[in-house]
Every structure is written in structure tokens, then in C-alpha cells.
């Protein structure tokens, strides 16, 4: 009986292991999203300061269930990335010892999100500084 229990344990382990080998050889699309999005945002680093704060408007949850803003923060660290609509967070951050401006001087605009185009139209105080890639811009406050 004890031997049988051992054989059963090993048999279930073998089946589980076979299943794992099959499942692990293929990644789900969302498991590669950080790599894909980070490669697109990487060139931004050449045009931005190394630290401080930068604004962002663009897609958040992408089709492959990734958060583009989160990947942008991962790519640009230690530069902080704040969505243009996250004013409450910026106000809260002003309580701490590093200075967060009331208005964002520089914003990354990713027009893959149609909302980003609308935002740019409604904020004429920002002008395009650099077109880093198709649909990816750095805009700066002119007044």
C-alpha cells in the first residue's frame, strides 16, 4: 500500500511535469508586452532629462493587457512619469521633499490613443518639441 502511494505520487508528478513542459514552451501575448512596449519607448530617453518629472498622455491598458504608462515608467526611471490627469497625485507628492511642478513642463504624447490627439488640440500651450517615432511625441509648454 505504501509503495502504491509512492508510485501514485510519482505518476501524478510525471503527468504534471509533462503538462508544464508543454505549457511553458509558449508565452501568452501579455507576457511579452513589457519587452514590446519598452522597445518603443526606449528612444525617448535620449531627449529627456535623467530625473525630475514628465507628463504622459496615451494608451493605458493595451490590447495585449499591458499598461503602457507603467512600462514607460519602467523605461524612463528615475524620471517620474505622471499621467496628465493625475493632478491629485502631483499635489500629494508636493508634500514630500522633492519639487513637483503644478503644471507639467514636458509631456510625452502617444497618439495611439485618440484621447491624446484630443488633449493636444485642447491644450495649445503645448508645442511639439520632438517626434521620436510615428505617433510618439514630446511636447513642451510654451506659455
Amino acid at each position: 500500500m505504501r509503495l502504491l502511494a509512492l508510485v501514485a505520487l510519482v505518476a501524478v508528478a510525471v503527468q504534471t511535469s509533462r503538462q508544464t513542459l508543454r505549457a511553458f514552451s509558449v508565452l501568452e501575448p501579455h507576457e511579452r508586452c513589457a519587452e514590446r512596449i519598452a522597445a518603443r519607448y526606449e528612444p525617448l530617453r535620449d531627449y529627456l532629462p535623467r530625473h525630475g518629472i514628465v507628463g504622459y498622455i496615451g494608451p493605458e491598458l493595451t490590447e495585449d493587457v499591458c499598461n503602457a504608462k507603467f512600462v514607460l515608467q519602467y523605461t524612463l526611471a528615475p524620471l517620474l512619469v505622471s499621467h496628465v490627469w493625475e493632478r491629485p497625485h502631483r499635489l500629494a507628492a508636493r508634500r514630500t521633499d522633492f519639487v513637483v511642478p503644478d503644471e507639467l513642463p514636458v509631456v510625452i504624447v502617444d497618439t495611439q490613443d485618440p484621447e491624446a490627439v484630443k488633449w493636444l488640440e485642447h491644450n495649445p500651450q503645448y508645442a511639439v518639441l520632438v517626434r521620436v517615432a510615428p505617433e510618439l511625441f514630446i511636447v513642451g509648454r510654451t506659455r
Binding site: 530625473h51 505622471s82 507628492a93 513637483v100
Partner: peptide
């Protein structure tokens, strides 16, 4: 990356911005 790249700004990661 904040720790390795940040220099004197390494602790900016402890902020409300990347909440």
C-alpha cells in the same frame, strides 16, 4: 533602475507619483 541610475535622486521612487 531608480537605485542604479538615480544618483542622488535614487529615492524619488518613494513618491506619490508612481503610486
Amino acid at each position: 533602475r531608480f537605485f542604479a541610475r538615480g544618483g542622488e535622486h535614487w529615492n524619488n521612487t518613494f513618491s506619490q507619483i508612481p503610486w
